[in-house]
Computed example of a mutant assay.
Amino acid sequence: MAVGYGSALIVGAGSGLSASLARALSGEGVKLALAARSTADLAGLAQETGAVLFPCDASKPVDVEKLFADLDRGFGAPEIVVFNPSYRTRGPVAELDPAEVEKSLMVSAFGGFLVAQQAVRRMLPKGHGCIVFTGASASVKGYAQSAPFAMGKFALRGLAQSMARELHPKGVHVAHVIIDGGIKSERRAEPQGKSESLLDPDAIAATYLSVIRQPKSAWSHEVEVRPWVETF
């Protein structure tokens, strides 16, 4: 079943989940735009998927406004928008650097709002579009010494819930995907003797496509994915 959309923007693109999602969408014939603070490492992925690259710090209103204005001028308003950025700082609450905590909130949550606002302004007149936010275990569980990440991810989840309730009746699908576990990558291999203990990014991408494909009569606003051996 086709995804039902012709173009997509992935914000916070990189070599992991974003790359798997870019390949999956490209395989469906979807025209791609990839945005990241630095696009230097995305040249190979862009060539492979035919994606257009845009520099953007999602935590800065000026950058996000410019990103969508640049899209309007050439690429066109994306029908799918995936928000992946997050920033993590760890430590005891009494010792956390307030500037680092602020950065975590600005990237993980405020950036999600900025990108979603620009996307929604373009989707609402058409009554058509899909916005997917990438969550984490920290979206629902605040771990010790990880308060800033939990604060940002809890806020992003709240944004997604509020948007879904507002926008679903207007034809814009909003979904939040909780990735409850570590993601396998070249830098993060599975421990010896613990096969399938990490999520395969291609498998996560397949879940995103499944959500994006959902017909209006059965939209999800939140989906969880985790390895079958992960406790929860």
Score class of each variant (00 low, 15 high):
Gly91Val: 03
Gly27Ser: 06
Ala40Cys: 10
Ser59Gln: 06
Ala40His: 09
Ala8Thr: 09
Ala205Gly: 10
Arg188Phe: 14
Ser146Pro: 07
Tyr87Cys: 05
Ile131Val: 15
Met106Phe: 14
Pro92His: 00
Ser139Arg: 05
Gln117Glu: 07
Ile131Thr: 07
Ala206Phe: 04
Lys194Thr: 00
Pro92Met: 01
Pro215Ala: 03
Ile212Ser: 06
Ser220Lys: 07
Ser139Ile: 00
Ala35Val: 04
Leu25Gly: 09
Ser137Pro: 08
Thr49Phe: 04
Tyr5Gly: 12
Ser15Arg: 08
Ala119Met: 08
Gln214Trp: 07
Glu79Met: 11
Gly16Trp: 13
Gly91Phe: 02
Cys56Leu: 07
Met151Arg: 09
Ala206Thr: 15
Arg121Trp: 15
Ile212Asp: 09
Gly193Ala: 02
Ser18Trp: 03
Gly29Cys: 02
Val64Gln: 03
His221Ser: 15
Glu79Thr: 06
Val225Pro: 03
Gln145Lys: 10
His173Lys: 07
Arg23Lys: 12
Arg121Asp: 03
Gly193Asn: 00
Tyr208Trp: 11
Lys103Arg: 14
Leu42Asp: 01
Pro85Val: 02
Thr89Cys: 13
Phe133Ile: 08
Pro201Ser: 00
Pro148Leu: 02
Phe54Gly: 11
Val223Asp: 08
Lys194His: 13
Leu34Trp: 05
Arg122Leu: 04
Asp200Gln: 05
Gly74Gln: 08
Leu199Asp: 02
Gly112Leu: 01
Tyr208Cys: 11
Ala155Arg: 15
Pro215Thr: 01
Ala150Lys: 01
Leu198Cys: 02
Arg165Thr: 15
Gln161Asp: 14
Thr134Gly: 07
